[in-house]
Design a protein around this nucleic acid. Structure first.
Lengths: 147, 147
DNA sequence: TCTAATGATTAGACTTGCGAAGTATAGCGC
DNA sequence: GCGCTATACTTCGCAAGTCTAATCATTAGA
């Protein structure tokens, strides 16, 4: 097992909220696609999983069922997402993006790309790659940790 | 400037909230030092900047003055932080950790170290180092971006 | 001294999360 | 077929955390 330096905890607890905060602001300030981070994640997930159920979304983005329901409420009210009762099991609802949902998602992705590109541009190429690689490493690591 | 791959935005927007969420839960579940992330950050900052002012803390952890005031309220009520009006300018307050604040911070740092060590233990040593290095890279990058 | 600026707090609203309880549908044992 | 349990989702009420606007106390400057 690796020897984690003492500085680790405080660094992580400083950097992660910092990045989170900047991302949040960036998504909020985005004209035409003002989204919260969970809203963005819902749209992104739905775009790859057309017709999935609410509980599926909730589990994927790590929210309780009530929270996810309210979250989707907001997106439906903004006409970004369509709720449709499933035909073979009418307890289920099938969620999908509207046309406007698609374009809003596109716009948000684009804006975030632009933002990250701008920020990461300050790095030499190898460090930039290292950061992105670290993200790839972290994803399964933290996704799999038990609640 | 580096060429940021298209996958970047969605990855970052998935990984960062994920890590954030896990950290938050870890700090909350910590018996004896149940702290929110901003609470932790305040304590950590105060431990290195004894006697600093409220506005200083607010700026450092990226909160509005009222939010920071309420945050410190909570810590004062729990007797982790001491509020003392400055003598040369009585509008200012000087903030400092109590003895209990010190030990609570210590305990929280320790618990987070343990948690991160446990999670990162799944990685080969070089990847672990890479992740930690990426954190170091990101800190100044996101700290300096204008609000 | 009066006024403007500064540091902090209070008040009120909003968002976003949760748990508990409620509703509607499905499935199963008899 | 009837009734019980399980499942999918919604509603309700609460708590935490954030902001803006208004306020208070103190200081600095004209």
């Amino acid at each position: 097992m690796s020897n984690i330096p003492e500085i680790c905890a405080t660094t992580v607890l400083e950097v992660v909220p910092l990045v989170m905060r900047n991302i949040r602001r960036e998504m909020r300030n985005n004209r035409g696609s003002d989204l919260s981070v969970p809203q963005f994640r819902s749209l992104a997930y739905l775009s790859n999983n057309e017709g999935t159920s609410l509980s599926d979304v909730a589990e994927h983005i790590g929210l309780s069922l009530p929270s996810a329901s309210k979250l989707i409420d907001g997106l439906v009210n903004r006409k970004l997402v369509l709720r449709k009762p499933s035909e073979d099991d009418r307890r289920r609802i099938m969620l999908s993006l509207t046309q406007e949902g698609q374009t809003t998602l596109q716009s948000a992705v684009q804006a975030t790309e632009t933002y990250l590109t701008r920020v990461l541009a300050a790095l030499p190429e190898n460090e930039c790659a290292e950061v992105l690689h670290a993200m790839q490493i972290l994803r399964p690591l933290f996704a799999s940790v038990a609640p």
